[in-house]
Design a binder for these strands. Structure first.
Lengths: 202, 202
DNA sequence: TTTTTTATTAATCATTTGTTTAATTCAATT
DNA sequence: AATTGAATTAAACAAATGATTAATAAAAAA
């Protein structure tokens, strides 16, 4: 189903994504993209019609990739709720260490242009995930304190993602280099599940 | 000490801030600023030299305002740790409801231009605040579980701020309008302190 | 009032930017 | 080998953008 991209198209998309992530949509020029991907400027429009279309494609694929990976963990049939939380932290922290600019980029562009998200594969899948169901079962059984599911999932994501978005501040506050900062995030792979479980335990 | 701004300068700054917050630095044009503030385009450069200088001034004042308000609560001599957490949540959630675009804007522009932050009034004040000290006292006394202070303050801010940055997603997921979303955030003023305290209790 | 300084304006400049055109090269097909 | 269609290129266009200029209006100082 997925469109097959030629080498040139991939070069353009790769360069464009890296620039969009770093500088945002508006601050990135088509000439920069052409230069970085080592193609002629006109090819950008030849293959992708316009800067905006190219951006939309990259945005969609990026979000789609991310959501797919996320839902995969959320919906695993074999794992317990607490394992799911652990796996979520591990997976998403690793993913974000690999692409630390992504969360701020996505949320910022989403702010600038909320409609570009409407086409997205239903984000509602998260609320209907096994993770949420398992938590609610736990509540019924009296194991967990009752928290609205929307708050529950928001809390997990907040603790995982926000520190990355604050990295410039945290690194300045604690005089960290990138490696030290990443270590701090690695620590959180073990801590966040503990914190979350404390939060939901009665 | 603070510079006195003329009426015209305030008009420019107000319009510019609102546009920068909404669209970011690059996507905002000087002509838009001039139009919105109802001044002649040349006055922008007359008073502020350049778009970038104007932006720096706005950025600095915004961050300074925010940090001042934050540190004020963190360093209150009268309140207990748990009260400080409650007050922080209340104050910052209210602040962010009033200016919901600010966190994403700040963190994004900071990502694009990390140096613009170096001039900032020491963010280190947070780590040396009474709030952190009180938490560490509690750890010594054996009341609280030991968490690195940097994680402790990060967690508080994460739970408070991140949901605002996700508002487009949350609103779509739960089909909320702005009022309903704000209510959700108001709820968190009471919940977050409870969650944080559970997190740090042994 | 006259002079001087400050504030405001319209017009313009020099770049930059996204996009298009028309010509050329390359690759596949006949 | 000739032909056709796709890929690539250099050049150019039109609009937008940040900034400046030179002239004028308003306010303050003399």
């Amino acid at each position: 189903m997925k469109k097959e991209y030629s080498k040139t198209e991939i070069k353009i998309k790769t360069a464009a994504k890296s620039l969009f992530l770093k500088k945002g949509y508006s601050a990135t020029t088509t000439r920069e993209i052409a230069k970085k991907s080592d193609i002629n400027l006109a090819l950008l429009n030849y293959y992708f019609t316009s800067k905006w279309k190219l951006f939309e494609i990259i945005m969609f694929e990026t979000l789609f990739d991310f959501l797919s990976k996320m839902v995969e963990v959320y919906n695993d049939e074999k794992t317990s709720l607490e394992d799911k939380i652990k796996l979520t932290c591990e997976k998403y922290i690793d993913m974000t260490i690999a692409e630390p600019l992504l969360p701020t980029f996505v949320l910022n562009e989403l702010k600038n242009n909320p409609t570009s998200f409407l086409k997205m594969p239903s984000t509602k899948m998260i609320m209907k995930s096994r993770l949420v169901a398992q938590y609610q079962e736990g509540v019924k059984k009296g194991i967990y304190a009752k928290i609205e599911p929307i708050h529950f999932v928001t809390n997990i994501m907040s603790l995982i993602v926000f520190p990355f978005m604050c990295s410039p501040i945290l690194m300045k506050m604690e005089k960290l280099n990138t490696e030290e900062f990443n270590n701090l995030m690695h620590e959180r792979k073990k801590s966040i599940p503990k914190w979350i479980i404390k939060m939901i335990k009665k």
